[in-house]
Computed example of a mutant assay.
Amino acid sequence: MPSRSNDPVEQALRRGAAEVIEAVVAVAASNPVVLIDGRAGAGKTTLSRMVAANWPVAGRPQLIALDSLYPGWDGLDAGAERALHDILRPHARGLLSTWRRWDWEDEVEAEAYAVTPALGVILEGCGALNAASARLADVRVWVESPAPSRKRRALDRDGDGFRPHWDRWAAQEERHLQRDDPRALATLTVAIP
């Protein structure tokens, strides 16, 4: 994934995506599971999209963002549990499953999406990597980025929708880091400036 850009963030994301893709190839599975965790604004979504766009295994990966599963601004833990119950465990057992998207505007569950065990899964979002999910994943990624950079990117991306919830969400992230230690569970760390 060569880049002509001098942007250090883009270069780091490209290097990170190449490392994740190399790790997926090394797994030599037809339906690998990749978990990408990190704090808000770290670069998880961009990294996961880059990996999905260059997926090295036959068939397209099922790219699922925990943002679609969190049941609101206080839902980090609940979203991670929903991912484990509705996506990761059935996939590991070879079962077709479904998960429901959270409608942030109406604050209700919305449409359902199927997850087939025949295809790989990329699950990205804060809370994706914990002791239970780590046992079901082939590649486990922690995305690290300095707090000022993360906050700037997150608020540039989500603006006033996220701004009033930043501290509330950061407290949930901190609990996740203290309780689950996703950095230690990761098989790869991607550093984004």
Rank of each mutant, 00 (worst) to 15 (best):
A83P: 13
G43H: 08
A12D: 05
E81P: 02
D37W: 01
R89W: 12
P164Q: 00
A29F: 11
G43A: 10
Y70A: 03
L188C: 12
R82M: 12
S68W: 09
V143I: 02
A112P: 04
A29E: 10
S97C: 11
M1I: 09
A147S: 13
M1R: 13
A154N: 05
E144L: 06
H85F: 12
V139W: 03
A114V: 03
D106C: 13
A134L: 14
H176C: 12
A184L: 13
G43P: 08
D156I: 06
R82V: 15
E105S: 15
M1E: 13
P117F: 04
S5G: 11
R140K: 15
A147F: 10
L69R: 05
T189R: 14
P61Y: 08
E173S: 01
I87G: 12
G161S: 15
N6K: 13
D180R: 07
G41A: 02
A171P: 00
P8L: 01
A40S: 14
L35E: 00
L188A: 09
D106H: 15
D138T: 04
Q11R: 14
D181N: 14
G43Q: 06
D7E: 09
P148Y: 00
P148G: 07
R179V: 15
D67G: 10
W73Y: 06
I21K: 05
P146F: 03
I192W: 02
A170F: 01
T45D: 08
V33N: 01
R150I: 08
A137D: 05
A131D: 14
D181M: 03
D37K: 04
V57Q: 04
Q172N: 02
A18E: 14
S97L: 07
L66Q: 01
T45M: 04
P148I: 04
E19Q: 15
I36V: 15
T116A: 10
A40F: 00
I87N: 07
A110W: 08
A83T: 10
S145D: 01
P32H: 09
E173M: 04
I36T: 05
A28W: 00
L188F: 11
A132K: 12
E109Q: 13
E124K: 05
G125F: 00
P148M: 01
E173N: 07
V33L: 10
L84A: 05
P146Q: 07
G79T: 09
A28H: 11
T98F: 00
R153M: 02
S5W: 06
S3C: 12
V33Q: 05
D86M: 09
A186W: 07
A58S: 13
D181T: 09
Q172S: 04
R175G: 00
Q172W: 01
